[in-house]
Amino acid sequence: MLSKRIIACLDVRDGQVVKGVNFEGLRNAGDPAELAKRYNVEGIDELVILDVTATLEKRRTMARTVATVAKELFIPLAVGGGIASEEDAAAAVEAGADKVSINSAAVANPALITALARRYGSQAVVVAIDATLEGDRFGVYVRSGSTPTGRDAVEWAREAADRGAGEILLTSIDKDGTRSGFDLPMTAAVSQAVRIPVIASGGAGTFGHFVDVFTEGCADAALAASVFHFSEHAVSELKAHLDAQGIPVRLR
């Protein structure tokens, strides 16, 4: 049976993980490669490196970060944040990314989805959607959630899939950073509307939230950042919890 994936997100700025990390045994708590190695040992299924710098000059630092993380990592690695063109995507892939995640650029230029899918295959193209509840629908925002697009998240996910996206990374703007649980209605609505996997993001605070998003939320994968920093064994403990709850996961 296909396992539900647990994905750790590393928010990286200037080559350092920006959210507070305090693992014992890490020489440098903010070093993405060390953290990636740690998560890998704990049994993380996939990693996402999110470039929160996203300025042209810092791009090179980012490529180096990706290359360093990818070097000893033999699980899927996705890279996102500020990827606006085929060239940006190529730089990430050359540095060792298996997948690229595009967000604002996909909305501005949906043909980019198709272009990247043709070049690298759909499995390498993740379309990230940031959305929030607006009346009876979920509105899509870009530029880190600051700019409304007028698009509906369910419709946009369908279009992205039709254009060649291999996965949807769906972040709830309402839930992000609250640790109050994933947005279950939104995740379920998008997941049931498309045939490609949907990664739920935003709101993870407890192990129970992951159970909820894999059952009620119909998510194929769940992504979190800070929740994995709670304890040294958060990833393995989370997986044991999910397994006990009857959710199929990859155990060590």
């Binding site: 994936r5 499995q123 009857g246």
Partner: peptide, 21 residues
């Protein structure tokens, strides 16, 4: 899973492409 009350998606909801572990 059978003994819990959690609804787990049936094979009718399995997606293609098959992506993951």
């Amino acid at each position: 899973a059978g003994s819990e009350t959690r609804p787990y998606p049936s094979s009718g909801t399995l997606k293609v492409p098959h992506v993951g572990w």
